[in-house]
Design a protein around this nucleic acid. Sequence first.
DNA 1: AGATATAGTACACCCCGCTTAACTAATTAA
DNA 2: TTAATTAGTTAAGCGGGGTGTACTATATCT
Lengths: 147, 147
Amino acid sequence: MQSSKQLTEVIREWSEVFMQRSMRDFKRFMDETGLSFSQVNILMRLVHAGITSVSEIGGQMGVTNAAASQAVERLVQLDLIERTEAPDDRRTKRLALTQKGRVLIEQGIEARSKWIEGLMDVLTSDQQNMIISALTLLTDAAQKTKE
Amino acid sequence: MQSSKQLTEVIREWSEVFMQRSMRDFKRFMDETGLSFSQVNILMRLVHAGITSVSEIGGQMGVTNAAASQAVERLVQLDLIERTEAPDDRRTKRLALTQKGRVLIEQGIEARSKWIEGLMDVLTSDQQNMIISALTLLTDAAQKTKE
DNA sequence: AGATATAGTACACCCCGCTTAACTAATTAA
DNA sequence: TTAATTAGTTAAGCGGGGTGTACTATATCT
């Protein structure tokens, strides 16, 4: 397995470069929107979950329901998420992104995409095609192994 | 340019999946280490910069020197970074990761790498090789365009 | 040498997000 | 129907991390 070592090394370098960039972009996003790490975290989870509840948010983030409730309240004030009573159990709330919230988070994803697209500019179209294939494989694999 | 549209779409999906995962791992890392976003941010910058100063940290993070100084102080207390007088200009401090700090942040990068390595398990070796090539290209491009 | 600028720190103060604890309202169990 | 449970909110208090200001110590300009 001679290529195994190289694979590890290649991935490590990519991870390092990408994490660094991720961190920078993420901080920029927080500064621009004025949102905290927790707030962005909640919005991202809502993108993925669609509709969820306060305690589910709290559970996923590893904080108390009180904390989750407060965080949700702030985001409702900002008109980024919508909080309505669940019809079947009026104790629980249905949380969903508002249009404004969705646009905001999409912009964050867009920014990250744009960066990678920019990297493509210095590559040949053969190389670009290979990267398309590779990322497609990785994305599929990630979605499959998502527990 | 028929492949141009697809390229955009592939990158967008990858970005979304990866950001979501990034966020989760990053939060886990902060919880495990007990470090804040800012603190991890500083450590990451030190990994990249090697040796730097308090005001450089402040400048990069967009905070005042006072804030940077306090943040550095906390990390020094935790024995994650080392603060010594610069020999040429005794006003400035040389900031560097300690062994402990370096190990910690390497573990973070390692965790991210391990995730991608895990994705490889469901792929053929041909596919793996293609991904190696693709990530190598992307890493190189990223380092080249790093302003 | 004396004035000015620069790097970093100390302090007072403020905001944010967390926790615990007490509470309300709705649901389920006896 | 009453008791117990569950979902969520509210309030008080704490700590982290930010600012502005004042300060110390070193370096630089004239």
